[in-house]
Amino acid sequence: MEWVIFVPAAVLAIAGGVGVIAARQPVHSAIALLVVLASLAVTYLLLAAQFIAVLQVIIYAGAIVVLFLFVIMLLHARSGEGPVEKLPRQRVAAVVFASLFLAALLAGSVAATRPLAPAPEGFGTAQHVGEALFVTYLLPFELASVILMVGIIAAVVVVKRGPPAGRGGR
């Protein structure tokens, strides 16, 4: 039963992944990422992670990818790769070592062949995750908000056109 859902989702995700790394234009790459995200949200549902699946769609697809698209539009002109590949052996080396890496990861993961036990009622619901977040992980949760704040401020500072050098500069 689950195969029916998993296999198309996995195929779609891998296809999206290929699209991400092979697209000529960044905008295509971003769209392909959207495909991957959606497929993964489906697998999350299979793994009894309903809340995270919803977050995946809302935050990743809804916020992050949109941010990417904004920036891509902003840098539209001349935002491609330069004509010259300065590292000629990079592509070969990347494929070789990535294959070795993949082989190692697969060798590690195939060991876990035991079928999953059925998930208990209410596992992975918003209530379940929320309880963990606000009880066990309250402090990290609050810290996460601080990190977001820092990120916002950092983005503003980096992009801001500062006053001409002199005041406040080093």
């Binding site: 990347a94 070592f97 990535a98 070795l100 890496f101 190692a104 990861l105 590690g108």
Partner: peptide
């Protein structure tokens, strides 16, 4: 970094 990761995982 990847080469290092391959070595460690390997």
């Amino acid at each position: 970094v990847l080469i290092g990761a391959v070595l460690i995982v390997g």
